[in-house]
Design a binder for these strands. Sequence first.
DNA 1: CATTTGACGCCAA
DNA 2: TTTGGCGCCAAAT
Length: 96
Amino acid sequence: MALVSDFRTKVLDVVSQIKVGETLSYGEVARRAGSPKAARAVGNILNKNFNPQIPCHRVIRADGQVGGYNRGGKAKIRRLKQEGAKLVFGLTSAKV
DNA sequence: CATTTGACGCCAA
DNA sequence: TTTGGCGCCAAAT
């Protein structure tokens, strides 16, 4: 009953496990959720399930980009910087 | 029920 | 190195 869809629940669970200052990529979350190729699905799930309990803003792309955010990528970056996450630099990946 | 979209990821040109 | 295209999964329409 509690299982709406294994993936959805698992993804939300994994994301909620992210600690402060840590950032996971969609691919990583997808892999933990049980499907290493469901990175797209992960983004979709988070996008339609913005749970205040889940730090979806700590989930970024594998390229190092922040990706997107229901509130706007800017807000996401802001939140990550505020928590001390290793953000490259805004939206443009400044590959040092 | 089938099709389209979407916060991605990786390979090829 | 950069840009483009394909592949994969789930949810929405």
